[in-house]
């Protein structure tokens, strides 16, 4: 398989990771250590490991910047298709909190089948109903999981 080169977004993503690391590092310092001495306080491991995280993301960021300077080939990371699907997925997750589990799931599955152009409408409806019915029955009757 040909190696795919990514350019757009890599530096930004690494900056984001660095920010995450810094966020954890700062909040590690504010952990309530109780009355334990420094060498066994609740802070010590989070501080050490978020420092490692920060160092690693910084080095990864440098690498990304270097790569951006030398490579010309770009590939658009922000595909409309992917972003749309992620968006709908989050609508689905939100809907789970409001609608019955089976309804939201069946609707999302139907959307997915149509989105991927896997099946024509009627079959997609049947397939989503089937998947939801079978799995919910399995999980609730066999594993006593309440939906």
């Amino acid at each position: 398989m040909k190696a795919v080169r990514y350019k757009s977004g890599e530096v930004e993503a690494n900056i984001l990771f660095l920010l995450v690391a810094m966020f954890f590092l700062t909040s590690s310092f504010f952990i309530d250590a109780g009355n334990y001495p420094a060498w066994s306080s609740a802070k010590i491991v989070p501080i050490l490991l978020s420092s490692v995280m920060a160092i690693c993301s910084a080095s990864s960021l440098m690498e990304a910047i270097r790569k951006r300077q030398v490579t010309k080939a770009t590939e658009n990371v922000f595909q409309v298709k992917v972003l749309t699907y992620i968006g709908v997925f989050f609508v689905y997750i939100g809907a789970l909190f409001l609608l019955p589990f089976w309804l939201a799931s069946a609707a999302f599955l139907l959307f997915s089948f149509l989105f991927w152009k896997s099946l024509p409408l009627v079959k997609a409806i049947v397939a989503s109903a089937a998947v939801v019915a079978v799995s919910l029955t399995l999980f609730s009757k066999v594993f006593y999981i309440t939906f």
Partner: peptide, 20 residues
Amino acid sequence: VKGFHMKKVFRVVSVLCSLT
């Protein structure tokens, strides 16, 4: 997958639904 299997799946589903 797209063809006659669906009929079978449908049958199973209808049985399951009525059972529930």
